[in-house]
Design a protein around this nucleic acid. Structure first.
Lengths: 211, 211
DNA sequence: GATACGATAGAACGATGTTCGATCCGACGC
DNA sequence: GCGTCGGATCGAACATCGTTCTATCGTATC
């Protein structure tokens, strides 16, 4: 059931998941789903945790190298998982502290931080910061494209170009920053953008850990 | 209309905003709203941008001091605005690149970054990172508390204590990190947590800017 | 063969976003 | 004063969705 739920979410986005479509795909009745799950929220929680299991498996071997580098590896893996599943980002921010695999992921990140020379509070803040940054950036970058793009009317590049064009038409003196990054944005790569920010955060952490 | 929309969102959360309640509060009919707004999404976009205007006004005077400190000031202001309006976080990640006040906020942040010795790409990445971190952390920390807490059945502190208790019952050898931060988490303050992470990010940025 | 219980099915309900046609109201021309 | 037109308002009606409820099935157990 969770597999089919995830498939539906991947194919039609968060809005495409409803009980009737899911029941149809499972070849059963609508009411049957409630035997296994008490609400749609629980279904989404379970589906999220189901996907997190894959992330967890992917980072199972991490832990041997430099602690900060290992933190980066885990963060990148989590980022990749959320970026191509926009619905995961939204639901990762709910009940994160209770869902079993989310807890395990926190623990895995935390264990790298344990190898750094930090106070308990600094460690707590560091891990929270990494998770916050990953989830926030991934949810932002992975946001569902507007309907015109989704329906194939306009290309994604065209859409980006159109927004940038809008920036360029703003007053150059009042918006010097937007003008400067217009070119940058048009050619930007989401993953690069994420990694650059993550590296800033981790550089700050390395500094704090005195290494 | 936007004022009433924001009031409804503040009072009853995102789920409490519906067209019938809004129409009732405005003393009009349901259909009338569609004369001013073409969909609920647009209503939420407009309401978000409406609130962002206040944030923008609050940081209008920022810009005289140390660039990184000014970045921090703006980030903290934005964070505070999102934390006590959970719905704002969710909708800040949509259409951020088109809504006028969101653009102005990007510009304001970017103008501080313009005073740092960075390449255009580094600047773009830095501002994106700050926004991603602020929005992600604020949305995470400001998430709607579960129904039991909202209805007043259990205290917020009791709820936190219960989650921590759950952590403590995990195997201490398999979950050393969660055990270490249990005390930390029980007494933690959201704003401190955010600022500590932000300072890590900004420390990394300062390092990159060679200052 | 009767009973109990895990499991399934789908009709019905209430809430919500949205559409649609009817209606109101004030300005304007004559 | 009357008629007309377009901006603005209203609420009934529709489609969709999550959820509830009750009837029913299938199988293990006595």
């Amino acid at each position: 059931m969770l597999t089919e739920t995830v498939a539906l979410l991947d194919e039609h986005g968060e809005a495409g998941l409803n009980f009737r479509a899911l029941a149809g795909r499972l070849g059963g009745g609508v009411g049957s789903i409630y035997w296994y799950v008490s609400s749609k929220d629980e279904l989404l929680d379970r589906a999220s945790d189901h996907v997190l299991a894959d992330v967890l498996a992917a980072v199972a071997e991490v832990g041997g190298g430099d602690p900060v580098d290992d933190l980066r590896t885990i963060a990148v893996t989590l980022f990749d998982a959320i970026v191509d599943r926009p619905w995961l980002g939204a639901y990762f921010m709910r009940n994160t502290l209770v869902q079993p695999n989310a807890l395990r992921l926190f623990e895995t990140l935390g264990q790298q931080a344990l190898r750094l020379d930090l106070t308990a509070r600094q460690r707590f803040h560091a891990v929270s910061a990494v998770v916050g940054f990953v989830v926030g950036t991934a949810a932002d970058l992975g946001q569902e494209p507007p309907a015109e793009v989704l329906s194939g009317e306009v290309d994604r590049d065209e859409y980006l170009a159109a927004t940038v064009e809008q920036w360029r038409q703003l007053d150059a003196e009042a918006f010097p920053y937007l003008h400067e990054i217009a070119d940058e944005f048009e050619a930007h790569d989401d993953t690069d953008q994420f990694r650059a920010g993550l590296d800033l955060l981790l550089a700050g952490l390395r500094l704090q850990a005195g290494g």
